[in-house]
């Protein structure tokens, strides 16, 4: 990002009208973006306020706002974390395969295919999850509950439909896989050729070269990519709304049919039939989601930018 130097300053003396208008509208647009972001926060707070200040008895379910949003936040986090744990190693493997293992021509095609997959609408992932993935996982859950039931995560009873937290974690993993692998691929391919060649020249095997020259260089890029994927997984709506059996409650049991729902899916499911304070409550939960994703994204950008500064010094 910092590779290009600042553009040269134009002739100073007279500032033309056209220039002023153009400069004004350009910086106006930049500021407008800031205003939009602020506007998102302000309007959400404004619409969520009635729910925040309302008495618990008036809210849906007759419980406090924290009691309503708490399980949803938990569900959102746990689904996203599963997705991240599954997707990150696979994405790194894909990125390594494409950059350093696959034949060159295949690699270009694969890169293109993966980029395409990043653009498939999330509602389609939901369709696939409910029609193909969930039924296919039912036997696996039965097996897990039977053989690994002593681990609280697989305590069971296994879901008969496969619409569980683990399934949605896997669907989200497939969704964020292209995002993480695209970013990892980029940083891996930018690993300095000199370092790589030096490693090989010293007799390193391909893996040793990757371990010594590529991974240290790409580490923060991978972390940043994973955080971006996490942000996407946190906010994913339609796939979760379609696939997950979100029946409330907080549980670490990943394979039963009782799971906490996620914030975004809950909004999509309840919003169409909601009125009055229920809408405000949903917007309040949206505000919580906004805060979480903002925090994650800021952290991700901070990590990625730190790497950029570092490599810019080279």
């Amino acid at each position: 990002m910092t590779l290009t130097s600042a553009p040269p300053t134009p002739p100073r003396p007279k500032r033309r009208v056209g220039d002023r208008i153009f400069a004004g509208s350009a910086s106006g647009s930049g500021i407008l973006i800031l205003l939009v972001l602020a506007g998102v926060a302000i309007f959400l707070i404004g619409e969520a306020w009635p729910a925040i200040t309302a008495a618990a008895a008036d809210l849906p379910g007759g419980q406090t706002l924290t009691a309503y949003i708490g399980p949803l936040v938990f569900g959102t986090l746990i689904a996203a974390v599963i997705a991240l744990l599954v997707a990150t190693p696979l994405a790194v493997a894909i990125a390594l395969y494409i950059t350093y293992y696959a034949p060159r021509r295949l690699a270009t095609a694969m890169g293109y295919v993966i980029d395409l997959l990043a653009a498939i609408p999330s509602v389609v992932y939901g369709f696939w999850g409910i029609a193909a993935l969930a039924p296919a996982l039912v036997p696996l859950y039965g097996w897990l509950a039977e053989n690994l039931g002593f681990i609280p995560l697989f305590a069971g009873p296994a879901s008969a439909t496969g619409r569980t937290m683990l399934t949605i974690g896997l669907v989200l993993a497939v969704m964020i896989l292209p995002i993480i692998s695209a970013i990892s691929r980029e940083v891996f391919s930018q690993a300095p050729a000199l370092h790589r060649e030096a490693a090989l020249a010293l007799g390193a095997t391909r893996w040793e070269m990757i371990r010594m020259a590529v991974l240290p260089y790409g580490k923060s890029g991978v972390i940043g990519g994973a955080m971006l994927g996490l942000g996407r997984a946190l906010g994913e709506t339609m796939a979760v709304a379609i696939v997950l059996s979100g029946s409330g409650g907080i549980t670490f049991n990943l394979i039963s049919s009782s799971n906490p729902s996620t914030i975004a899916a809950n909004i999509a499911l309840q919003f169409p039939e909601s009125t009055g304070l229920a809408v405000n409550t949903l917007i309040a939960s949206g505000l919580a989601l906004f805060a979480i994703t903002m925090a994650v994204n800021m952290l991700a950008r901070w990590i990625v930018n730190r790497r950029a500064d570092f490599s810019g010094a080279n």
Binding site: P60, G61, R163, I242, S245, G248, S257, S261, L269
Partner: peptide, 12 residues
């Protein structure tokens, strides 16, 4: 209108 109890399987 919203299922009042936690637990069980929920479908859309």
């Amino acid at each position: 209108g919203e299922w009042p109890l936690p637990g069980g399987e929920a479908a859309n």
